[in-house]
Write a protein that binds this DNA or RNA. Structure first.
Lengths: 207, 207
DNA sequence: TGTTTAATTAATCAATTGATTAAATCATTC
DNA sequence: GAATGATTTAATCAATTGATTAATTAAACA
């Protein structure tokens, strides 16, 4: 049994699964050890504390999302509207494939918002990307293609419409007695509908 | 000290404060007792368990929100657009006044989505309201005033755009190094902007 | 006033949990 | 193959926590 596969990796995989499913507080080191089929002391041997391990898993998941949006926003070949469509499509697809992620991340955003905020501020090039996108919006506004809107407001709209429905899906399905498969169909449609909605709101059609 | 004010009420108020601030798992009965300035056994004396007390506070908060939207949706004097504007205005105002509420409720929605869903399904007249609103949408569509859209999709858009920004406010302010007061200004503008956005997307202007 | 009921307190229980430790086992190197 | 260091295990610690209990005090009532 010993070393037949990387113990450290097994722990990370187990932690990823359990943390993402139950969140920080409701996950125990014993849960993780059991999932990885190892002694609980091993988890402390490889990762000093529960917090360490949690932040590893959390940052990993969070980076995935932030990198996605940065890649799209910094792609010079896309105009504003293409960027909006790309973000919406990528995010909704991503959350459909990994339905546990929105809950997991929002759980931590709620539990400890400043920590994630601070991390984004220093670790990532996010602030620059944000400013660049802001400039692009300003230019399009001057060209008369879009109405005036702040980058923050626009991004808030996009992210809200992509993330929130994914978070409340289980509750909504319970509340209106709707099959989750039916809800998934609605979400699938939203890959284009949400982008249409946002573009329609800011685009100025040339006569 | 004894009975100089209603002990039961003092417990509820303390529980409301602590639960809404720290969520279920991170709140202890000792926290609540301390906040209410009473012996911890009293909390068990009046409310059998931690869960009981939590659900009391949770349902109270959740009812507030659901009643708000039901009141607006069942107001026959409002057309679709007025309803949209009313919901957006009411919710954003409400979350601005009680900034802890979105986090608290979403925390539970994430922790235990089925429970809230089931409760909405049976306790509330929500399903009927939902169907009535659905009919109203259908009629407006047949009259040619709006594009075709499902009630679920429309409501999801409205709620997403109202709730999500309130949830991520602390994180966003940290991430882009922005004063919370500045963010509040942006939120204030959204009271009309969000409704404009949604109406613009579904309204069919007569020529 | 005396008695019964309700409210309150301090102390404690039992279970859970993150963390540690000391001993055991395996792998590597000389 | 002995020695050294890394890995693994079982046992345990100390702290926390929801819950309970038995004793005490206040209130209500006769």
């Amino acid at each position: 049994m010993r070393q037949d596969r990387n113990t450290e990796q097994a722990i990370i995989e187990a932690a990823r699964k359990i943390f993402q499913e139950k969140g920080f507080k409701e996950t125990t080191m014993r849960d993780i050890a059991a999932e990885a089929n190892i002694n609980m002391a091993m988890v402390h041997y490889y990762f000093r504390s529960k917090e360490n391990l949690f932040f590893l898993v959390l940052n990993e998941a969070f980076s995935l999302l932030v990198e996605k949006i940065i890649t799209i926003l910094t792609n010079d070949e896309l105009d504003i509207f293409e960027k909006i469509r790309a973000i919406v499509r990528e995010y909704i697809t991503f959350f459909t494939e990994k339905p546990y992620l929105p809950q997991f991340l929002m759980g931590e955003v709620i539990r400890n918002p400043e920590r994630i905020g601070k991390q984004m501020l220093k670790n990532m090039s996010f602030l620059n990307v944000f400013r660049t996108f802001s400039d692009q919006l300003e230019k399009e506004y001057e060209k008369g293609t879009i109405q005036h809107i702040s980058a923050l407001s626009l991004l808030l709209n996009i992210i809200s419409l992509c993330v929130f429905p994914a978070i409340v899906k289980p509750m909504v399905c319970g509340a209106i007695n709707c099959d989750t498969a039916l809800f998934d169909l609605l979400i699938e449609d939203r890959k284009t509908e949400v982008a249409d909605l946002i573009i329609k709101a800011i685009q100025i059609k040339k006569i």
